[in-house]
Nucleic acid binder design. Structure first.
Length: 304
DNA sequence: TCGCAGGTAGAAC
DNA sequence: GTTCTACCTGCG
């Protein structure tokens, strides 16, 4: 089936958005299992010209499968209208040329994005995606070659490190202990992840966050250990589909400063305020495009 | 070897 | 409120 919405699937997959690792890729076909109304559905995606060609197998209607796919790849968003918006702003006009077809890559379930985003802090894309894939292998459900991301309750009692696993299980040799968070390479973020699992199993309900306004949702997510302003904005953008988020890190700071403030040094917090004010509901997309424009145009190495 | 990787927590001004 | 520093870990 073809979805007639322009997209660059490879660019979107490999753009390092902290919703989830890229899907499994074989010969330009991207596949993964996704829970749709609790039912495991395996999707196979392929680039077909400017559009997306896909098929699925699972016990759900075609309508529901398309709806889920459209949510994850944000297919209802009008890219051409967004490109007109970019074209009307001198500072942004170049970007669509370098990022044509790039879309948001949203998490099928917010919890995966929460853990992925915590994992991404002070980390490289390569390393956090590897860690998240390992977490799926260890504690997710397996369907063929694919794994779902575990639910928050599934991570409540995981061991934090090898030592804890050795002391609490009947494994004799510490080198055999590989069913703990630190063995996934998450380092000091392990306790953050387990505490986040506790909070989202008990005191915080996802549905409430979807219903909140931005500031309230931001303050709520900020209470989770390991979540600062940058990670909170990522979680709200990629996990909860808040389009007005403008996740600001050291790179966005350099790029915004270069494009809008003549290279003047400014705090990440000020850049965040500026982005949200300036771009409104397009803030999430502009942030995504700024980062990849800087990467692809060579601006990033110039600003380094 | 050493610094860096799409930051955060905790403490000190 | 804003600024400073240590921090798991794998890679170059």
């Amino acid at each position: 089936m073809i979805v007639e919405a322009p997209i660059d699937l490879e660019l979107t997959q490999l753009s390092g958005q902290t919703s989830q690792p890229p899907w499994m890729e074989v010969d330009n076909c991207y596949s993964n299992v996704v829970l749709v109304d609790g039912e495991p559905v395996v999707f196979n995606l392929r680039q077909a010209g400017d559009f997306l060609d896909f098929n699925f197998r699972g016990n759900v209607s075609q309508k529901k499968a398309i709806s889920k796919l459209s949510y994850i790849f944000d297919l209802d968003f009008d890219l051409n209208k967004f490109y007109k918006y970019l074209g009307n702003h001198a500072e942004l006009a170049e970007m669509s040329k370098f990022c044509n077809g790039l879309r948001l890559f949203l998490a099928p379930d917010p919890f995966e994005c929460i853990i992925s985003s915590i994992c991404s802090a002070n980390n490289s894309i390569k390393r956090w995606t590897k860690s998240i894939s390992q977490i799926k292998c260890n504690w997710g459900n397996q369907y063929g070659n694919y794994y779902t991301f575990p639910q928050s309750k599934d991570l409540l009692n995981v061991y934090l490190d090898e030592e804890q696993e050795l002391n609490s299980s009947n494994i004799q040799n510490i080198s055999m202990c590989n069913n703990n968070l630190k063995s996934c390479g998450v380092g000091y973020r392990a306790p953050y992840m387990r505490m986040a699992s506790e909070m989202f199993t008990g005191e915080i309900d996802f549905r409430e966050i979807f219903a909140m306004d931005y500031d309230e949702a931001f303050e709520t997510i900020l209470k989770v250990p390991g979540v600062g302003p940058k990670v909170a904005d990522c979680i709200l953008l990629y996990g909860f589909n808040f389009r007005e988020a403008f996740p600001s890190d050291v790179w966005i700071k350099r790029i915004v400063s270069h494009l809008y403030f003549d290279g003047k040094d400014m705090s990440v917090a000020k850049v965040r305020d500026f982005g949200m004010e300036e771009f409104g509901n397009n803030a999430g997309y502009v942030q995504l495009y700024l980062f990849h424009y800087a990467r692809k145009s060579g601006l990033m190495s110039k600003l380094k």
